[in-house]
């Protein structure tokens, strides 16, 4: 294990949720920053490097699903974890179509969330390696 901290972007329109989650993740050796909308998330992703995106579904402006499609276009190797209070099989299936992402229902204990982030980060590392091998 290296001492590298996974870089996480928390995308959620609810400020208090986003800010406290960022503080909590930072105590768990995860480098977290926030974005309050899908647009802001996409801007940040094009400018900075991230490993895992935590994405809310219901946001004003661009929905999480729309953002997800755009994020996957910018960087297909980016791991996305959908974190939402609104769950339905329809959304889950729609999300699965985009591939390479997980689905978690709020409220979710931070320990579970960090475990998912770690797993997602590991997946990203292996995928990047595989991709580097195949020209």
């Amino acid at each position: 294990m290296s001492s590298y901290k996974p870089k996480v972007l928390v995308v959620d329109d609810e400020a208090r949720f986003r800010e406290t989650l960022i503080k909590l993740l930072n105590t768990k050796l995860i480098e977290a920053t926030g974005a309050e909308s899908g647009m802001e998330a996409i801007e940040k992703i094009t400018e900075n490097k991230y490993d895992v995106i935590l994405l809310d579904v219901r946001m004003p402006g661009m929905t999480g699903i729309e953002a997800l499609a755009k994020i996957k276009k910018i960087d297909p190797l980016l791991e996305v974890i959908i974190l939402t209070g609104h769950a339905s099989v329809d959304t889950a299936i729609e999300i699965m179509k985009h591939g390479g992402c997980e689905y978690l229902l709020k409220p979710c204990p931070v320990d579970e969330l960090t475990a998912r982030i770690d797993a997602a980060y590991e997946r990203k590392v292996t995928r990047t390696k595989v991709k580097a091998k195949t020209p």
Partner: peptide, 20 residues
């Protein structure tokens, strides 16, 4: 349930932060 999940998530996180 959907509407309650969101405030519930905030309460849960604040508790974890307080504990920290």
């Amino acid at each position: 349930a959907h509407e309650i999940n969101n405030p519930l998530a905030i309460i849960g996180q604040e508790v974890e932060w307080l504990r920290h």
